[in-house]
Design a protein around this nucleic acid. Structure first.
Lengths: 149, 149
DNA sequence: ATTGTTTATATCGTTCGCGATGCAAATATA
DNA sequence: TATATTTGCATCGCGAACGATATAAACAAT
């Protein structure tokens, strides 16, 4: 018999990995209407909160490396969603700013959070239980991201 | 001011996406010692539980598409971890079986679940709270995977 | 038996995610 | 000021994920 700790049904990571992929799939049809992918949507969330940020700041906010974010931003620039301008104070930086098209996308995607939200709600995930879920995920993220840096 | 539902800190999916990536990163150094990636490790978990399964069964167990799993299995076959033999009853199927090398990997990775487990435990994720976490993730996975299929 | 449909995999192209590496600007140090 | 180090970003290569498509075997219906 296989050891308990190797059973797939006992794996936290597999659950997170699967849940993450399946929710992303729930976003996909809504986002692709606007020609977006999920990671690109995350970049938009960051920039809608605060426009004109350097690459590094965006990457850190998303817990990603710059070598992941740079090509992603390049694709979005090619789509006319944002601009990447050389920093004036620090010429090494690239300041990423939304274009008008990028700003307007927020309105076109207004229904996305609600649509996806309702696709997730179930017996065990309700408005009452999500604070607990958020706490646990935030705790893990804090622990794991500190361990690295 | 940005709408609440677009704030990154209110996003469930972003938390899952981040937690999933960060835990996978915790596995990475342990797995790469044996030349494995995390998805390859998941395939091993499936096969250690039950050897000699067709591609489709493995894919379904992992909530993945066969066009993701096939190249993954091909790489593992090249590494001598498993074999992919044409099915005898049904020649369309490819029966995936562990080699001796693949079976022995379980012993070489014996410490992985514990190492990663302790990297995740924190104030809000404890042996007492993980059943709740599992329930919520399982609920979401069930809801989302039914909606698709 | 012929034709059509379904099923099990495989192939291809695009987009991440990230380690490794490179380069130029900024900063620190001698 | 000259040199060394650090920092910010880009490039490259590989391994997933996945949509679209292809191919061959199994099965169904004339």
């Amino acid at each position: 018999m296989i050891k308990e700790e190797f059973k797939l049904d006992n794996q936290l990571c597999f659950r997170l990995y699967t849940a993450s992929r399946l929710i992303t799939q729930a976003y996909q049809p809504l986002l692709s209407e606007q020609g977006l992918t999920y990671p690109q949507y995350l970049v938009l969330l960051v920039l809608w909160e605060k426009d004109a940020q350097p690459v590094n700041t965006i990457a850190k906010r998303l817990f990603l490396e710059t070598n992941t974010v740079t090509p992603l931003l390049q694709r979005m620039e090619k789509e006319g969603i944002l601009t990447r301008e050389k920093g004036k104070k620090d010429a090494r930086q690239r300041i990423v700013s939304l274009t008008q098209k990028g700003k307007i996308l927020q309105e076109k995607l207004a229904n996305v959070p609600f649509t996806v939200g309702s696709a997730v709600l179930c017996e065990s995930v309700t408005p009452e239980t999500t604070p607990d879920l958020f706490r646990m995920l935030d705790g893990m993220i804090a622990k794991l991201s500190n361990h690295v840096s």
